[in-house]
């Protein structure tokens, strides 16, 4: 157990947790307005590839992070167009989006880099600014949802869209804004993954972290701070897993590979009933129904 308390492990936990934390914040924003974003994994992946490409092209890791965020927000706009404006089924649309992003990023990456050999390492950011950025996002979201009219309106749209509409709030517009912010945060998470200490894009680099982030939002009861704490917990499991793989134990190392996902599943199970789901989550809004 003492592996958990080593400083290096804790450092790794934060490094591995930050991208998931950003994506979880993204999922949280759109879910608070009632839009379930199952395209999150795909948006993270798109942001990761966009961030990598921009970083490689410009040589600036920060521009990479910015590009990833913008691409994520663009993905959010596509999703909003489908599920908010066209009222497509949110579950099926999100899954379809993720499937498309998975193959499209693989295709684009293959097109650009496989021909010329090994994809280059890109400039890397330290964790410190990324951690600060994540904390700033938490603070901003807390402020948004608790201290601004816009945020309160967003929450109202997720709980009782009819009532919010009757009060004159634009349900569709607020859901659009939230889905784009959410996509942007997911893209930022993906870009932070590849422009952070990793400095590399590989096929399916996010490896399910977007899905983990979705589970963490439930675990966190739709609270930004708790979502980040959950993500660091996931990062800790991931870090412990990486460390224990190298050491000889009686437990097969594959058990550690599965550990972060088992913990996520357990967290989901333990908190699913206890946390308060936005009442209109996943339900398209039609005026006059």
């Amino acid at each position: 157990m003492d592996v958990i308390f080593k400083l290096a492990t804790l450092e790794a936990a934060i490094r591995l947790g930050v991208p998931v934390a950003l994506a979880a914040l993204g999922a949280l924003v759109s879910e608070r307005t009632g839009v379930l974003n199952l395209g999150l994994e795909g948006m993270m992946l798109s942001g990761a590839l966009g961030g990598y490409a921009a970083n490689e092209a410009t040589g600036s890791a920060w521009l990479g992070v910015l590009a990833g965020t913008l691409i994520g927000a663009g993905c959010g706009a596509i999703l909003a167009l489908l599920v908010v404006t066209a009222r497509a089924n949110q579950v099926v649309t999100g899954i379809a989006f993720t499937l498309l992003a998975l193959s499209a990023t693989t295709y684009l990456f293959q097109l650009r880099y496989s021909i010329g050999g090994i994809p280059p390492r890109v400039n890397r950011l330290d964790m410190t600014p990324l951690v600060l950025l994540t904390l700033a996002c938490v603070a901003a979201l807390w402020f948004l949802f608790n201290r601004t009219t816009l945020g309160l309106a967003m929450g109202a749209v997720g709980e009782a869209p009819e009532a919010a509409d009757a009060l004159g709030y634009k349900v569709e517009r607020l859901r659009w804004i939230a889905t784009m912010i959410g996509g942007g945060l997911a893209g930022l998470g993906g870009a932070a993954l590849v422009c952070g200490p990793l400095g590399l894009f590989i096929e399916n680099v996010t490896a399910g972290r977007g899905w983990v982030a979705l589970a963490l939002v439930v675990f966190a009861g739709w609270k930004p701070g708790a979502a980040v704490a959950g993500a660091i917990l996931f990062g800790l499991c991931d870090a412990v897993q990486l460390r224990l793989q190298g050491t000889a134990t009686d437990v097969p190392y594959e058990a550690f590979l599965a550990l972060p996902y088992v913990v996520t599943l357990v967290a989901l199970v333990l908190r699913a009933r206890a946390s308060r789901t936005p009442a209109a989550l996943g339900v398209p809004y039609v005026r006059g129904m």
Binding site: L214, A215, E254, L257, A258, Y261, V269, R273
Partner: peptide, 27 residues
Amino acid sequence: WLGVRFGANVVISSLMLVYIADSALAW
């Protein structure tokens, strides 16, 4: 069962079980 007993979202739980199955296969 996790869905009906604990209210865990089936989309997410079924996918987490994919990763766990992957590890089981590797072992």
